[in-house]
Design a protein around this nucleic acid. Structure first.
Length: 468
RNA sequence: GGGGCUGUGGGGUAGCUUGGUAUCCUUGUGGCUUUGGGAGCCACUGACUCCGGUUCAAAUCCGGGCAGCCCCA
């Protein structure tokens, strides 16, 4: 039984869902390093699969770089090292010997990849270079950790690209947005694109676009980011090419990354007081069949459920029969906590009428359909669930944002207000109200107003919130 | 960075002040009866965070480590 209510205490509810839905085991004896248990890992694998599909489709090649980075390479870009200094793990010994050059356990892979890029890129015909990897990275979080959301070993994808011009790199950023939209549709997740403030951008970046999703407690969760580096890394790492005129120029670079926080966002956005609610595209089990058996009809019912399961699996629907020796009610709760999108019930009553009884996890809607049309019907219900989830989630994202004219007693929401873009006013907003200034919409939203601090007229909105 | 609190079967807990046989719920295993919204009965398995100290005797007292939680900066 889920005891904690989502709206009343989101943090405790979240922890309970992670445990009860068996997504992760956090008893591993290192803080912030949790075990991916089978059900949770299947969800993550589906996300990885969609990311691979989209990156492959847009001409990115998958690679896999070493986990360890020599200190000498790590320190080549000054802002970058400043940003990560306090949160990297070091390998200082090999066997009994102290290492001459210490090794950094990657917190992200720029400094692992770029020395190699310098060897790989020689001519303009080598560009654009578009690669990605799906790996784990390590950051020494000192704050309280939380499954999927704040961890020390982070499962993520990172794509890195090199271009012959700033414009071509900019086109890459635009392509990243398309990839984002397609992936997020699978996850039924809404998001906003905010250009981060200069003091909050990625260490070493020219600019950063943060991808944020609103959580039910009025906070925001950053689930990914896209960076334009210009030549900030290619200069120290000497990634240059000979252009068509025979001149040497530095490449312009971008990166794009999203992590297991996507799982955290799915839990937070879609879950309810009965447990997890999974988008059909992520669900390890999309349809669970519950046989309703009573005296003397076990064989008939079991044959019918097995047959139905086989047909649905053949049709590409991930389906299982729950034939455990439990009461049906207990099975309903079991699969509801785990977020299975569609429940199918089959008993003598249904079989005699040629029907299947179904229940949708996202909204509890129940009904029946003809057994004969099961493949088509199940597929169409799953599509309907995905559509409804996406729409409901976007509606929540929209209502999570509130326009404010002053910062007196700000509500526990994402705040939108005028901001003149001056750093001084930005810091004032953050310091006085203990909020993070998330940035300014990447795509102009037609805002007109006055800076909430200095009162100067501005056409730019600022967004601020507490972050998770 | 500073301060406070807590570690007991897989999960949640009682016991700790005042040292001596570890409580209850849940989960798990086996059996019988059950099955359209969390079934009942019986039997069984399973724990004192780690290291050191005090003591005839430590879950309990003392010191340290590790892990977790909370508050402040």
């Amino acid at each position: 039984m889920i005891i904690i209510q989502k709206e009343e205490n989101f943090n405790e509810w979240y922890n309970e869902i992670v445990e009860k839905a068996e997504l992760s085991d956090k008893r591993y004896p290192i803080k912030g390093m949790n075990v991916w248990t089978p059900y949770g890992w299947k969800i993550m694998r589906h996300i990885d699969t969609y990311i691979r599909q989209e990156l492959d489709r847009t001409g990115h090649d998958e690679v896999c770089f070493p986990l360890l980075i020599p200190e000498t390479e790590f320190k080549k870009e000054k802002d970058h090292i400043k940003g990560f200094d306090a949160e990297v793990y070091w390998v200082t010994h090999a066997g009994l010997n102290e290492l001459d050059v210490r090794l950094v356990v990657r917190p992200t892979s720029e400094t692992a990849m770029y020395p190699m890029f310098s060897l790989w890129v020689r001519s303009h015909t080598d560009l654009p270079l578009k690669i990605y990897q799906i790996v784990n990275t390590f950051r020494y979080e000192t704050k309280q950790t939380r499954s999927f959301i704040r961890v020390r070993e982070i499962h993520f994808f990172e794509s890195h690209t090199c271009h012959d011009s700033e414009e071509d790199a900019q086109r890459q950023v635009e392509e990243d947005f398309v990839i984002l939209e397609r992936v997020m549709k699978k996850l039924c997740l809404p998001y906003s694109l905010l250009r981060r403030t200069d003091w909050d951008k990625f260490p070493g970046a020219y600019y950063t676009v943060g991808i944020d999703t609103a959580m039910p407690n009025g906070r925001t969760l950053q689930i990914g980011s896209i960076h334009h580096y210009r030549t900030n890394f290619s200069e120290p790492y000497n990634i240059s090419f000979e252009d068509a005129n025979g001149e040497r120029r530095f490449v312009h670079q971008t990166t794009y990354g999203m992590s297991e926080r996507l799982v955290g966002a799915v839990i937070g956005v879609h879950g309810d007081d009965k447990g997890l609610v999974l988008p059909p595209a992520l669900a390890p089990i999309q349809a669970i069949i519950i046989p309703i058996i009573s005296k003397g009809n076990a064989d008939t019912v079991n044959n019918a459920t097995q047959d139905l399961s086989r047909r649905l699996n053949d049709a590409g629907i991930r389906c299982q029969v729950d034939d455990r020796d439990e009461r049906p009610g207990s099975k309903y709760f079991h699969w509801e906590i785990r977020g299975v999108p569609l429940r199918l019930e089959l008993g003598m009553r249904d079989i005699e009428n040629g029907l299947v009884t179904y229940a949708r996890r996202n909204d509890g809607q129940k009904g029946t359909f003809a057994i004969a049309d099961a493949e088509k019907e199940a597929e169409s219900i799953l599509d309907g669930i995905a559509d409804a989830m996406l729409q409901a989630a976007w509606e929540k994202q929209r209502t999570a944002v509130q326009d404010v004219e002053s910062l007196q007693d700000p509500p526990e929401k994402i705040l939108r207000f005028g901001w003149c873009q001056e750093e001084e006013c930005g810091h004032e907003i953050e310091d006085r109200f203990d909020l993070t200034l998330l940035g300014t919409p990447y795509n102009d939203d037609g805002y007109e107003g006055k800076c909430i601090v200095c009162g100067k007229a501005t056409k730019k909105a600022g967004y601020a919130a507490r972050s998770m």
